[in-house]
Design a protein around this nucleic acid. Structure first.
Lengths: 356, 356
DNA sequence: ACGATTTATGACAACGTTGTCAACCCGTGT
DNA sequence: ACACGGGTTGACAACGTTGTCATAAATCGT
């Protein structure tokens, strides 16, 4: 009883300056509420035998302090982990995600870390990320594009002092860990190949607005146009969103030009697929009347007719490197080369052909 | 020093019967090795200041006992979780996986559980699953097909007393938790529609051998053939593997028949896509000369030309239900309806048309 | 031979919860 | 007044590691 009595008289909780950085624990709530930690535990776990007035007071303090029970302590005390496993076999078809997950997981397994999955969506709020990190207490986070491009998210993680590593970020910062393909150079390489095959009028379908690879691939396009002497025409560059539909629409726009291109470079394979379908609808034969190339070497590249010539990204290797960097950082090691760039590889298939 | 001395004299470790079910802890290793737990900890974490002879002895015992440090205890003691987060935005394109992950995660988040991802591959060994579960100590596991069909895996989990729930298992067991689409009925519904449109000769491309949905969809096909009076011809049923290539090959085989079918039912959308491409290569117009239908309503269904008529599975709902069942079970609740079946929905697009 | 390092080791506290159990409170029936 | 009993509460142990620190043992320099 001593604890509770002492606490009750203490009441009117005050923050101790020394506790500034320590995270809130069940003791803090108990102290503030003037009850024992066990009672707080009962409230949190919705167990019976707590007066309603106390229940309410505790919940209120929990919200006020944004208290999150420590999962490891719950596990240890409660003899269960409050976690479940998802053994997921991603079919080969879904390989961008597969290669990414595999790369991250393989390193985690080797280095005896667990991998906590958090699905993202278009506009994942920083508040959700914060809640996720506070709840799970992960030591670090991997941020594939485009989530890593949210200034709000990276700021939140920085404030929480949770290290993160980005895959294909838009803005490269020398002091942040990241890995990305050599989009610009890869695009130039692709355009050299196209030039060598005699094409001079090249259409370009951009990726999702704001995505790092979008910007860099476009830059590679313009560089090549200037360097090699392709036709310079702003109408040859159209918007896209990395999906089939936008590729289809973009290709239609390009084919409707007074002087249409002889080859279309799409910023990824899904859009290239859309372009191929668009060409077919216009009764153009690919690659005889129009060549089409993509980026990624995603599974769809082998399924189009004709099959797609494309630049492959080494996703698996990037994911591994990123995870290793993050774990090194967590172990206090000094990371040399925080920013890493990986070469793409040109995969030659049937959709690109010399100009007749 | 007392601890170590007592232990040293104990030596020649013996198992206590009472400890039979308790998992091995660092204390057991220390006792067996005749050293303190701190020394074992040093060895495990590759810290300096341990004699090589002791190091070796400890590692040997660790292997012998298959000792795995408790992650929660490590977290709590070490002030870090040894886990990292992967905030993954699965593009809409990859939606089977996306819907599955989202369903599982959403329930986990609501019920304050963490989700530990373990990528699977074609033949995930039971030994790997065992290691994964022992390492992470997850309370339960979700097993999407086809991993849940491995007798070796389910037996291992049963032996470890780790509850699991299966998505689309091949063999339905009344005492195991599972969710699956109503493949058989869905297939019959599809064939009724086909019948109503005047078709009498229906080709069928099977799914991956051994997969539960493969078996049940095929069963639905034969049921309908008998019930409605379609042409009965074993040659109209060909093998497939749920991927584009096998769909393409299967369709080619069907179209090469003396009397080819007027409609092809593929056991999923990727194969239906392959069938459409095959038809085009044979200069057949879909759906005028040949109708094609699929299963899943995967993203590719909107990207084929013509777009695919297909049966949509409620993956998200099934994943949610499965996770809820599993968590209920973990909380000792009685699960009514362990085996659940979900209705599919016919999505009418352009690839199925009345027989001319 | 002897103090000064360096190596090696263990005792013990700490981490933040939950589980167990004793005990208090308060209304009820006698 | 008093035993009884269920609702309510808190003290304390337990969970299995790692961190801290004291100290013993081995090695080194003189």
């Amino acid at each position: 009883m001593t604890q509770a009595r002492a606490l009750r008289s203490a009441s009117f909780f005050t923050f101790k300056v020394a506790d500034f950085l320590r995270s809130v624990t069940i003791k803090d709530i108990a102290l503030a509420a003037g009850v024992s930690i066990k009672t707080v535990s009962r409230v949190l776990n919705r167990e019976p035998y707590v007066r309603d007035t106390i229940r309410e007071r505790v919940w209120q303090l929990v919200e006020q302090f944004e208290y999150q029970p420590h999962p490891a302590a719950r596990s240890l005390g409660g003899r269960r982990t409050y976690s479940i496993g998802l053994i997921l076999e991603v079919p080969e078809t879904y390989s961008y995600v597969k290669r990414l997950i595999d790369g991250v997981f393989d390193v985690c397994e080797t280095r005896r870390y667990s991998l906590l999955l958090r699905p993202g969506h278009e506009a994942l709020k920083a508040a959700e990320v914060k809640k996720y990190v506070r709840q799970t207490r992960v030591d670090g986070v991997i941020l594939p594009a485009p989530i890593g491009d949210s200034e709000e998210v990276t700021r939140t993680l920085t404030e929480m002092e949770v290290p993160f590593a980005q895959l294909s970020p838009r803005n490269i910062r020398a002091d942040w860990m990241s890995a990305r393909p050599n989009d610009e150079a890869a695009c130039r390489e692709l355009l050299h190949e196209i030039y060598a095959l005699g094409h001079r009028r090249v259409g370009f379908i951009k990726g999702l607005r704001g995505h790092g690879s979008t910007v860099r691939r476009l830059q590679g396009y313009w560089d090549s146009v200037n360097e090699l002497g392709f036709d310079i025409d702003p109408n040859l560059v159209v918007d896209g969103a990395f999906d089939f539909e936008s590729g289809h629409a973009g290709a239609m726009a390009l084919l409707n030009l007074q002087e249409p291109p002889t080859v279309i470079v799409a910023s990824n394979d899904d859009m290239a697929h859309g372009a191929i379908v668009a060409a077919r609808e216009r009764n153009l034969s690919v690659p005889n009347d129009l060549s089409v190339v993509g980026f990624d070497d995603s599974p769809v590249a082998k399924q189009t007719f004709p099959s797609l010539t494309t630049m492959r990204q080494p996703i698996y290797e990037m994911a591994q490197a990123l995870t290793n960097m993050l774990l090194d950082k967590l172990h206090g090691l000094d990371i040399q080369e925080k920013v890493r760039e990986y070469s793409c590889e040109l995969i030659r298939r049937d959709s690109l052909k010399a100009l007749a």
